[in-house]
Design a protein around this nucleic acid. Structure first.
Lengths: 160, 160
DNA sequence: CGCAAATAGTATGTTTCACATACAAACAAC
DNA sequence: GTTGTTTGTATGTGAAACATACTATTTGCG
């Protein structure tokens, strides 16, 4: 209330330029809304895990390798919806940081079996703990029913 | 039915490696689901507008400039949640392709007023037509009520 | 008024990721 | 055993996010 008396003239002016642009249905597009929501969560994610230096995809890769010791690069790529080349560079970076190791498969020597190093397991534990809070911040925006519907809707879109 | 007789041994084996990885709650994360859904729509978007060579952000920029002739770069950036540097490179590319023009403002010579060229208006019209079908494909996954809830939820996340 | 602070745009560089293409080694199918 | 497929690898391109620093301009305030 009292704050209104501090409002400068400029803050009340320029309603078109500074405050509100005409969106003309752009904000009614599912693709647009999805992208903005993702960007918002991504920013919060990056702030949440700051210092650990793990992107969402790097974390997802560590996560799956931990849950499936010895998986091949290709399987992880397929499970996460990335192509081999992209997975390659992700694993390269994780291996450079000694978070995962590649091990040639003995049954199929084309394959690289992926395993977490102790350091990889350690950082995964830390990032999981931080993600839990980050997730809670966003999930708490919704009731359990709303959340379930939202997750189901997102999966539907993913599989469309 | 008859196809089952053609199934190779290999297609039945490797249930762990090829078919289903353990996800251990990764797929219960809102951030993960959101990212996968966005990636899916993004891929479909790119396929939909193939040949026009406009990314989502480039299109959104054209869209807002068209709806708000003469907006400043910074306003568009703020409206779309990008920083100045990112907006800069987007406008650079659009200007290189002669889809938008920059015009120094006469009332505030720091500002660049953005306008669509005829070519920019033309390509925007085309991309809008294609986006309509792309949007319809995904929106038709939901009932009107579900869709409204979904859009509201995404906006909530964006503003969190 | 005049100077300090804020603002708009610009330039530059780093990092991540998606995708395309091409290639080699290993394996599978017939 | 040759042919075709799969797995990983190498290489290059392009989009985008972000950080930092710099200039020009405008605004705020004493």
């Amino acid at each position: 209330m009292a704050r209104q008396s501090h409002i400068k003239l400029e803050e009340l002016a320029e309603p078109l330029e500074e405050a509100r642009l005409a969106f003309e249905k752009l904000d009614g597009l599912l693709g647009y809304r999805l992208r903005r929501a993702q960007a918002s969560m991504h920013r919060d994610y990056m702030a949440t895990v700051a210092g650990l230096d793990l992107t969402q995809k790097q974390t997802a890769t560590l996560w799956l390798v931990h849950a499936n010791p010895g998986v091949s690069q290709g399987s992880v790529a397929a499970a996460l919806g990335m192509d081999r080349a992209t997975m390659m560079s992700i694993v390269d970076r994780l291996e450079d940081r000694s978070l995962v190791i590649r091990k040639r498969s003995v049954t199929d020597r084309r394959r690289q079996e992926l395993h977490l190093t102790p350091g990889g397991q350690d950082i995964l534990r830390k990032v999981k703990a931080r993600i839990a809070k980050h997730e809670e911040r966003f999930k708490s925006l919704f009731t359990p029913q709303e959340l379930e519907l939202l997750l189901a809707a997102l999966q539907k879109i993913q599989n469309a």
